[in-house]
Design a binder for these strands. Structure first.
Lengths: 261, 261
DNA sequence: CCTGATGCTTCCGCAATTCAAAACCGTCTC
DNA sequence: GAGACGGTTTTGAATTGCGGAAGCATCAGG
C-alpha cells in the first residue's frame, strides 16, 4: 500500500521501517528480503542506517531487527501536538464516565483510522482498540463517520485506498455500497458499525467537525452485542453528538490533510 | 567507523523531524531555518519529503509543520514490541495497586531515559500522554539505576552523552561525582532521586536485569516530599526489588543497544 | 574434519539523487 | 507602488546511493 513514488532514499527507508513494524515481531533480514522490493545490499544498507538512527533496534544475538524506542519518544510529541487527544481528553472522559461504555477517539491517516485515545468502562474486553492502533476506515464506525464528511475529492482518494477485505458477513466489499451508506451517514450525522469489523462488536460514531465544517476526527461509543443492541446504541446519540460538538468547537484550526497531488 | 558519523539523507531528514517535534508546537519554515544547519532549499526539500511521507503534517493556512499522526501508529508497534511495557504491565500494575504510589517504567535511549509506562495511584491505563516522555539519565532514579549497571564501555559512552545541567541544588554537575554514586548504587542495588530533577519529587528505583545480567530498564516508585521522606521510600525497597526481578525474569532475551563500533 | 548450503557483509564502478546558489514568485507592509 | 520577506523552482555539478558479484561467517550433514 505504500506507493514508493520516487521520493528518494527517505521514502525507501521509511518503507523498510513500515515493513519491520508491520511484522509484529523481531525479524531477520532474510524474512524482510522475501517481501521486500529492494535487492539485498540496498535493504542491508537501509537497515544499517535505520539502526544507526535508532529507529530500529538490532539484536546481535538473534540477528533480528525490531522497532526502536526512539519511535516511542517521537510519538509523544506527535500525540500531544498532532492529535485531537489533548483537546478531547476531558470530554471523552466525561462521556465515558457518564455512560460507562468504551469511548474511542480516532483520526484518519492515509485512508486508515488511527485510534488516538480511548476510555474503557470496564476492563472486561481488553483487546478492543489501543492508542496508536490502526484499523480500516470502511468497516469501522469512526472510519465511516469521517469518510462521510470528507470533501468530495479527498473522499474519492480515501475510498481508493480501502482494501474492502471481508472481515465479517456485514462488511462492505465495494465502494458502491459503502458510498451509498456514506450519503446516509452524512445526512443523519452518525455512523453505525454493525459488526462489520469484528463479530459481536458494534458502535455508534459521530464525526468531529470544526466551525469551518472540516472533519478532523470521530468519536465512538463501542460495545458488545451481548450488552446492547444497535437500537440501544441510539439512546446514546444525543450525548455522543454533544461530545463531538464540544470537541469540534475547541479544535479551531486544524491541519488540512495536505494530500500531495 | 565513528559513532557520530552522519549517514546520508535519512539522517538529515530525521534530524529535521527531531527539530520539528522538539519545538513543541507547529512551526514555520523560517523558524526552523534559524536553527537549522541546512541551507534553505535543502531544508525545504526535506520538509516536503517528510510531509509526503506523512511523518509531518502541514497546515496550508498557517504554513506550519507539525508532527504527523503516522508517528503515533508507528509508535504503537514500537511500544508493543521494542519496550518492556507489555511484559512489565501486570507487575507494575500490581505494585502500584498494593502501594498506592506512582510507578514508572523506563528504558535508556541514546543516553536519555524514555518512560515507556507509568501507573498513577488513581489511573489504571497507560496512554501516550504519559508514556514516551524523555528525561536526562544523570538526575533521575531510573536513569542512575540503569547507568550503574551498564557494562563499562557503554557506561562511559552514556556518561559522555550527559549534559549535567543543574536542575536543582541536588543535581549532579559532573561525571566524577555521578560515577562515585553509580558505584554505590551498583553495590546497593537501588538508586534514589533526591530531588535532583525537580524540587519536591523523590524516588527509589531498581534496575531490571535479565538472567544474563544485562540491564534492560528500570522501575521506580516516585512520590512527593510532602508524602514521604527518602527514608520512608526505603520501606518500599523489598517490593520494588521483587517487582524488578519478576520483570527481569520474563524479559529473557533483549536487544543489545547495538552500538555500531 | 571436510563440504556444501545458507545468509550476512563488503567491494566497487556506474548512475541517479541530492545539493545549494541563484533566480523567481506571491504576499504583506508602509 | 515599491520594497521586504518568506516560500518555491530551476539547474549544473558531484556526492551518494545503488546493486551485481564476490567474500565471509556459521551451521548441518557426510
Amino acid at each position: 500500500m505504500n506507493v514508493v513514488t520516487s521520493d528518494g532514499t527517505v521514502a525507501k527507508a521509511l518503507s523498510v521501517l513500515d515493513q519491520v513494524t508491520a511484522m509484529g515481531r523481531p525479524v531477520r533480514m532474510r524474512e524482510l528480503l522475501e517481501t521486500s522490493e529492494f535487492p539485498k545490499p540496498t535493504l542491508y544498507r537501509l537497515l544499517q542506517t535505520l539502526t544507526n538512527q535508532r529507529m530500529l533496534s538490532y539484536d546481535k544475538e538473534q540477528q533480528t531487527y525490531a522497532p526502536g524506542i526512539r519511535l516511542v519518544s517521537l510519538a509523544h510529541s506527535a500525540w500531544s501536538q498532532a492529535s485531537l487527544a489533548p483537546i478531547a481528553a476531558p470530554h471523552i472522559s466525561a462521556l465515558g464516565a457518564s455512560l460507562r461504555e468504551a469511548i474511542h477517539l480516532a483520526q484518519l491517516d492515509n485512508g486508515q483510522v488511527v485510534f488516538v485515545d480511548k476510555r474503557q468502562a470496564s476492563n472486561r474486553f481488553a483487546t478492543l482498540a489501543r492508542t496508536g492502533q490502526v484499523a480500516p476506515a470502511y468497516c469501522t464506525g469512526v472510519g465511516k463517520a469521517i469518510l462521510a464528511h470528507l470533501p468530495k475529492e479527498e473522499q474519492a482518494q480515501a475510498l481508493r485506498q480501502q482494501a474492502f477485505l471481508k472481515y465479517t458477513d456485514a462488511t462492505h466489499t465495494s465502494a458502491e455500497t459503502l458510498l451509498r451508506e456514506l450519503e446516509q451517514i452524512h445526512s443523519e450525522g452518525v455512523a453505525f458499525d454493525r459488526e462489520e469489523h469484528e463479530v459481536g462488536i458494534i458502535s455508534i460514531a459521530a464525526p468531529i467537525l470544526t466551525n469551518t465544517g472540516r472533519v478532523v476526527g470521530a468519536v465512538s461509543i463501542a460495545t458488545a452485542t451481548n450488552r446492547h443492541t444497535l437500537d440501544g446504541l441510539n439512546a446514546f446519540r444525543p450525548a455522543l453528538l454533544d461530545c463531538a460538538a464540544l470537541i469540534g468547537a475547541e479544535a479551531q484550526s486544524w491541519q488540512s490533510p495536505s494530500v500531495p497531488s
